[in-house]
Simulated assay, not measured.
Amino acid sequence: MQLKYSLVENRKVKAAPRLRGKCYFCGTETIAKCGSKIKWHWAHMRHNKCDTWWENETQWHRDWKSHWPDVNQEVVHFDSKGEKHIADVKNNNSIVIEFQNSPISETELVSREEFYNDMIWVVNGEKFVHNMRYGAKLPDPNHPLCNNIAVNEDFSKNFGYRKSFTFFHISDYAGPHQLVEIHSSEEIKDIIEHTHIGHYLFKWRNPRYVWFKSSKPVLFDFGTGVLWQLMRFNDHSSYCIAAYLKDDFIKDFGGSTSSEALKSF
Rank of each mutant, 00 (worst) to 15 (best):
E55I: 03
R46Y: 14
S259G: 07
S184N: 12
A150G: 00
H130W: 05
P176I: 05
E260Y: 13
S164R: 14
S214Q: 09
S258M: 12
S237K: 03
D154Y: 08
S80P: 01
W211A: 02
W42R: 06
R232I: 08
Y116E: 05
L109K: 03
S237M: 02
E106W: 03
Q73N: 12
I191P: 06
K189M: 10
H41V: 07
F202W: 12
F265D: 04
Q229C: 01
D252W: 10
Y244R: 14
R232G: 06
V218N: 09
K213E: 01
P217I: 06
K251V: 12
K246H: 05
S164M: 12
M119P: 04
K137E: 10
T257L: 05
E83V: 02
F25G: 07
P139K: 08
E186Q: 15
I192A: 04
G82T: 13
S111L: 11
A87P: 10
N93V: 08
R20T: 14
I97M: 11
Y173G: 04
E113A: 03
D51H: 01
G254S: 12
K246E: 00
V96Y: 00
I86Q: 03
A87G: 13
L262W: 15
E126L: 13
K14V: 14
K163W: 07
S215H: 13
N142H: 11
P139G: 09
Y244M: 11
P69H: 15
R205D: 05
K251C: 13
I104P: 00
K49E: 13
D172T: 08
E98H: 03
E55P: 02
H67I: 03
I95M: 07
T107C: 01
W228K: 00
T107Y: 08
K127I: 10
C23G: 01
K12W: 07
G175C: 06
Q178E: 13
Y200A: 01
W64K: 02
A32K: 13
P139M: 10
S185P: 01
N10A: 13
G82E: 10
S184A: 09
W68K: 07
F212K: 11
E29G: 12
D140Q: 05
R62I: 11
M231P: 00
A174S: 15
K163D: 12
D88L: 05
E114I: 04
Q100V: 06
V96I: 13
F25T: 01
D248C: 09
V110Q: 09
S264F: 09
V76L: 03
D154W: 04
D63G: 05
F212I: 03
D118S: 14
K84D: 01
E193W: 09
R133D: 06
K163G: 07
N56P: 04
S156P: 09
D63Q: 08
L138V: 05
N158A: 14
K84L: 01
R112H: 06
S237P: 03
Y200Q: 00
E114F: 07
A43W: 10
W228V: 00
N147W: 12
N124H: 10
G254A: 14
T166C: 01
T58S: 15
E114V: 06
P17F: 07
